[in-house]
């Protein structure tokens, strides 16, 4: 039986992603480590500040996991929320798990505590890069209703690999933010088809911004994460020079494109206008060996 990753909340995702019954939470809700910055603005708090962190096993191998709850403030990062993720990644330096899994669902920095959130995200980024530098892979799963935007969009790309579903969205500034700031002619956030083909999982996968495209099923995310456990982090000069060349080629090759369909056409994909209609298996078959 399939369980939608998109529909599940953070705790439900963890329960099904990890080996049954293996999850042990750190700073659990009973610790009541809530944000002190929300009550002065008359905003509700959550007992876990919108992120669940802890340890478990995947296929019998020890992993550390963090899962953001999109339903609470869109998964936005505040002081406590960010510090929980940073502490988790630093714990990896001591415990040396097989990997750290981040189930990211976030609009970015929580405006009620914007400075604390921005600094917190930078601490998460440094902790991700420190964990990877110590040889511990950090894997990201994206498939929730709120997508992965703002600082967490940058954090995700600092990690070793991203698993995304078609329903997952990944970017920096959300379409609503761009429309509000630059006008509807720049980015019409209500044009759902435009939004999905710009920041949705299929385009991210074709562009090489995400490593695996999976159906919206927690078991599929689990299978992909399991396969990626043996990823060897590589932050060497050679690896970053290769990434630099790849990102430079992307600008040269697609810099004048104004729509994802232009990029898909240049990738040599037959009938690119049909891509949004295909299910994951059909899509992967139609685009095999055509990724940027």
């Amino acid at each position: 039986m399939s369980h939608s990753y998109f529909e599940a909340n953070a705790r439900e995702r963890l329960a099904q992603l990890l080996d049954a019954g293996s999850f042990r939470e750190l700073l659990p809700p009973g610790a009541r480590m809530t944000s002190p910055h929300l009550p002065p603005l008359d905003a509700p708090v959550a007992f876990d500040d919108g992120v669940v962190v802890g340890a478990g096993t995947l296929d019998g191998r020890p992993v550390l996991v963090g899962a953001q709850e999109g339903g609470f403030n869109g998964g936005a990062v505040g002081e406590v929320h960010g510090a929980k993720l940073t502490g988790l990644l630093e714990r990896a330096l001591d415990e040396r798990p097989a990997a750290v899994l981040l189930l990211v669902e976030s609009g970015g920095v929580r405006l009620h505590e914007a400075n604390a959130g921005l600094i917190g995200v930078s601490e998460v980024m440094r902790a991700v890069l420190a964990a990877r530098s110590a040889g511990i892979p950090v894997l990201v799963l994206i498939g929730g209703q709120y997508g992965c935007f703002g600082g967490m969009g940058i954090v995700s790309r600092c990690c070793d690999a991203i698993v995304i579903s078609e329903e997952g969205r990944l970017g920096l500034s959300g379409p609503e933010v761009i429309e509000t700031t630059c006008g509807v002619e720049e980015f019409d956030s209500r044009d759902r088809a435009l939004v999905w083909r710009t920041v949705g999982g299929k385009h991210r996968y074709l562009l090489g911004e995400a490593d695996r495209l999976v159906p919206d099923d927690i078991a599929a995310f689990r299978a992909a994460a399991r396969e990626l456990l043996d990823t060897r982090p590589d932050l060497s000069l050679a690896a970053l020079e290769a990434e630099h060349a790849r990102l430079g080629r992307r600008i040269d090759r697609f810099g004048d494109c104004r729509d994802a369909r232009d990029i898909w056409t240049r990738l040599g994909i037959a009938a690119p206008e049909r891509l949004p209609l295909l299910d994951t298996a059909e899509f992967l078959a139609a685009t095999a060996d055509r990724r940027a």
């Binding site: 959550a46 876990d48 609470f72």
Partner: peptide, 18 residues
């Protein structure tokens, strides 16, 4: 053991039982 159910979102609530 303590359990948490639900999410703090619009029209919703979380319930911690300990």
């Amino acid at each position: 053991a303590a359990t948490l159910t639900g999410v703090v979102g619009s029209g919703n609530l979380e319930v911690l039982v300990e």
